[in-house]
Structures are given as C-alpha cells and as structure tokens.
C-alpha cells in the first residue's frame, strides 16, 4: 500500500507544482499510515534522490524514447502499471496542464474516483472527502470518493511546499510502453520568463493602459518583482498582448501569492480567474472600479504616475537603483 505522486517535468526538470504535490502526497501518506512514493516518466536531469526531502521514499523512473513527449494515452497505461506495482491507494497529480490530460484518463482506466482542483488535505477518518475549488474559485465543494483507489489533482499554489531531510530510493521501472499516437512537432516557450501558472507574483494590466506601446512600465515592474505578466480579456482580444497572458474565467486561472492589477476594472469574469490569489493589489483611477471590493490593497490613481513610482520604491526596498 502507498500514496503515489505523479512527478511532472519540463525539459528534464521537476516542476514546482510537483514539489507541492509531493509534500501533499506525503502528508496524506502520514494520515493513512503508509509511505509516499512517486513516478516520473521520460528523461530527467534533476537529482531524483534529493526529492526525498519532500517526504517521498521511493521513485519509479520509467525511461523510454516513447515517453519523451506527452501522449496521455501512453502515459496513462504506464502510470497504471506503476500504480499497480506500488499498490497505490491514493494517486496525486498536480492539476496543471499535464495532470489534466493524464489524471482523468487514469481515473477511468482504474475506475478510481477522481477529484480535481483539490485545495486542502482530505478528511480520512471516517471516509475520504476532498475539498475542491468549484464555480471558478467562487466556492468550495467537499467531495467524497467511494472507490478503493482515489485520485486527486491538487491545484497549483494551493498547498505549501515543505522541504525537510530525506533521500528517496530511485528505481528504474520496466513498463510496457505503447508507441505514441500523438507526435509533437513544435514547442514554443517564452524563454527565461516565469510561467504564469507557476509564478509567485503576477503583474497584470488592462484597458487602462490605453495601448500596447505603454506596456514597458508593466514589464519593468514585473521584472523588478521577478513576476510573470498577465492581462485582461479585452487586452488579449485587441491583440495588445498574446492570448496566453489572458487570465480570467475564459483564460487561465491563477493563484499567485501576489496579484497586482493595473487599470483592470475587475469584471466578475476576470475575478473568477484570479480570486485564489493570496494578496491582491489594485491600481485604478476609478474609485468605483469593482476590483477594489476584491482587493487587499489599493491605490486610486493614474497608473501612468503610480506604476513607475511603485517600481522605484520596490527597487529601493530591494537595494537596487
């Protein structure tokens, strides 16, 4: 018996969201009196043994040329084989792009109850109930899982990573791997920048910026804070910024520690994508902007004056001029 955590990688590196999933999985293992193990598919450059510090005792590594890119069908069959070998009772994914492709497939394959978007540890005595985000983060649901094997996809940034001491045993696992039916032909990445869904701080701007030529100050603020940049829907629809920066109900949902909204009024559809942020700062010249109601801190003022001053004040705090 074990708790099995799926470790997701990008370019051979373990994703931050997976560190959260490992910490979360090891806490569940403690709760139900078993050990936490993990599975990683494809090429890995990081030192896997060091992942023991997130509470993982054993890591199954499956290396095979057919696993170099995600084909959810192929990956699912491999994870199912590892889950069987590990005697997994709970399988934890991050609810990120790859988790969303694999976890529901695995649920159907193993006929194991699946809760996606988990935000807290499950209640395990009695029963097994997981708190998840619903209604685009406007509410929570407590969902009971009725099957022997349970699958959980943990929302990114919903559970704090804890690193302690420990070393994981890494074993090379021989799985039957089907040839992929999905062939990846091109990968485009915003290089050197923080991926939006993994960013601790996000600086976002809206129509109040008046045009794409004024984004320099937004990017400067983001750079100063090591933050990712985002935008509202009208900005993406007007092609001022790329669509993959659009946060909100129909864009990307994020949950950073700090969300700074500049010149965004805060329509309910926008809030749906950002209201899991821990701290929200709103800069808007309209004191009636609905976003102030959802904010922790706010400045009623002209972004073109406030933002450069804000950047300078942060540089001063950080000791850079």
């Amino acid at each position: 018996m074990s708790v099995l955590v799926y470790i997701d990688t990008a370019d051979g590196h373990v994703k931050k969201a997976s560190l959260e999933a490992m910490t979360y999985g090891s806490k569940i293992a403690e709760q139900i009196g078993t050990s936490a193990e993990a599975v990683v598919l494809g090429p890995v450059n990081d030192d896997l043994t060091s992942l023991g510090k997130y509470g993982i005792k054993k890591i199954y590594n499956v290396a095979n040329d057919s696993l170099n890119h995600l084909d959810a069908q192929v990956y699912t069959k491999v994870v199912a084989q590892v889950a069987d070998a590990a005697g997994a009772k709970v399988i934890v994914f991050s609810n990120n792009t790859n988790g969303k492709a694999i976890a529901p497939r695995l649920s159907a394959r193993l006929k194991a109850g699946f809760v996606s978007g988990a935000v807290a540890l499950p209640e395990t005595s009695p029963g097994f109930t997981v708190k998840k985000s619903v209604f685009s983060a406007k509410a929570f649901a407590n969902v009971s899982v009725n099957t022997d094997i349970k699958i959980i996809a943990l929302n990114p940034n919903a559970y704090q990573t804890i690193a302690t001491d420990g070393t994981a045993e890494v074993i090379s696992f021989n799985a039957n791997v089907d040839p992929p039916k999905v062939k990846v032909t091109n990968v485009t990445k915003a290089s050197g920048e923080v991926p939006l869904t993994e960013a601790e701080i996000v600086v976002s701007a809206g129509r109040g910026m008046k045009g794409p030529e004024n984004w320099g100050m937004v990017e400067e603020l983001a750079k100063t804070l090591h933050a990712a940049t985002a935008c509202s829907r009208p900005v993406a629809d007007a092609h001022w910024r790329p669509h993959n920066e659009h946060v909100g109900q129909t864009g990307i949902a994020i949950a950073p520690n700090l969300y700074i909204a500049i010149g965004i009024s805060g329509a309910i559809q926008h809030l749906a994508g950002v209201n899991r942020s821990k701290v929200i700062v709103v800069i808007n010249k309209d004191p009636e902007a609905p976003f102030f109601k959802a904010a922790d801190y706010g400045i009623v003022g002209d972004a073109f004056e406030v933002v450069p001053k804000f950047t300078e004040a942060i540089k001063k705090l950080k000791g850079v001029s």
């Binding site: 990008a10 994703k15 969201a17 890119h69 995600l70 990120n96 792009t97 790859n98 039916k181 999905v182 062939k183 990846v184 032909t185 091109n186 990968v187 485009t188 990445k189 915003a190 920048e193 923080v194 991926p195 939006l196 869904t197 993994e198 993959n244």
Partner: peptide
Amino acid sequence: REIEGGEETCEV
C-alpha cells in the same frame, strides 16, 4: 495545446 509557459503543436 497549452503547456506551462508556452504551447506545443502536435499531430494526432
């Protein structure tokens, strides 16, 4: 399809 911090084009 979307991936963290980018996108991936595939044939299926």
